[in-house]
Design a protein around this nucleic acid. Sequence first.
RNA 1: CGAGGUGUGGCUCAGUUUGGUAGAGCGCCACGUUCGGGACGUGGAAGUCGCAAGUUCGAAUCUUGUCACCUCGACCA
Length: 477
Amino acid sequence: MAKEKKLVEAITSMEEDFAQWYTDVVKKAELIDYSSVRGCMILRPNGYAIWENIQKELDARFKATGVENVYMPMFIPESLLQKEKDHVEGFAPEVAWVTYGGGQELPERLCVRPTSETLFCDFYANIIQSYRDLPKLYNQWCSVVRWEKTTRPFLRTTEFLWQEGHTAHATAEEAEERTEQMLHLYADFCEEVLAIPMIRGKKTEKEKFAGAAATYTIEALMHDGKALQAGTSHNFGDGFARAFNIQYSDKDNKLKYVHQTSWGMTTRLIGAIIMVHGDNSGLVLPPLVAPTQVMIIPIAQHKEGVLEKAEELRGRLKDFRVKVDDSDKSPGWKFSEQEMRGIPMRIEIGPKDIEANQAILVRRDTGEKITVSLNELESKVEEILKNIQKEMLEKARKHLNSHIYVATNYEEFKDIVANKPGFIKAMWCGEEDCENKIKEDTTATSRCMPFEQEQLAETCVCCGKPAKKMVYWGKAY
RNA sequence: CGAGGUGUGGCUCAGUUUGGUAGAGCGCCACGUUCGGGACGUGGAAGUCGCAAGUUCGAAUCUUGUCACCUCGACCA
């Protein structure tokens, strides 16, 4: 019991202080370290490897839909950024400027990209002439910089890693189709690989991206009941095309503007993984993104044959990402370490097991210990990893569903926001005034208008005028 | 950007009220004993007390300025 207590001391419990729990997990799992640059984090091997797995899987899914990767400069000349009015207004307050180069003041200052719409548009204007050049389906993996007022590891940092897809299409229909296609690709990825269930929908006018005609979003619910926007997909219509003069000659020999989309996901996803799956012992990673899926922990490893056996098991499990912890720490230490790092499964192998031709498999998500004959090791590991992946999604979905509330009048709405962390489904009249009032009264914001609409009431939950849409509301990160 | 808080070995902090030789626990290094839920012994290394100026015989401690970080708001992926 005394040892149990010490374990808890290492990581603050989430019930006690969720923010501190988050910070403890991020540090203890060695995902990041703070750097000497304000608001910028160092991604350590454990953290970066998760990003690499996300990247690998997403990239494959993008390419399966015809997307190609490119790389654009990290600097944007001020004149280029200025071209689309809403876009500049949206981003100007949070860009970093480069004013000197080679010891000389630059004739035109350059911003460090906060996002690359303007660069892609400038590029597209040069390379698109004919309908035969369309569509253009480009994506880039890079980092962007936004000078945020306050930062938190993964959730909001000054520089962050992401991908940004930018497409140009001949027709509005095609652009809309691509916008929604990518949103669903994101949501499917999050559910299948990250085991995080998503609410899919459209942002209100107030919440949409600077310069977009429409923004779609996927929203996830964190363990503390707060919402996190996990990915967005924008339909730009021909707004940017008009600002940047991106025209093509159509089959009918008429000059037409292209229709564009952009879509992105970021390292924030790692924050979502932490806050959806993590527990009081630390990180819990879904097997499909875990850099190490199985940690083999030899017991009494100084004894004859134990380390050799552990190595032998690792050799047999080469279809999985497996490591042996042969450091000279005590077994208890290694267990805790494996748990804090969120490694989905550990295999304990000691003299007694070798004697009995067995090993103990322990699930990180449930703590369940399973004794397995070494004869069926490979198949059992595969089966259990699959179950972990599946059950983590089910558990997260259960949490999401049990934290969605319905409000049909404003008193009810305010009561839920104040007392029940989670999403609130409520009807809305479509007016920004009501969004502002709700935010002012409760700090909750409109998260999205879900694709799956329901008619919960006839009137807006805030003003009582006829309702137009059902909206998910919540406090957001 | 508003309100509050914190800066002392790698980490968590004590010491500051009342100025007088820089401390503890954990971690780290070496050796030995251990090993089925964060083992133990012995020895050792490691700190310009965030930075700058001032007061003083003397500053971690008092004064002024400054920087960074954290929490909560406003803004955002």
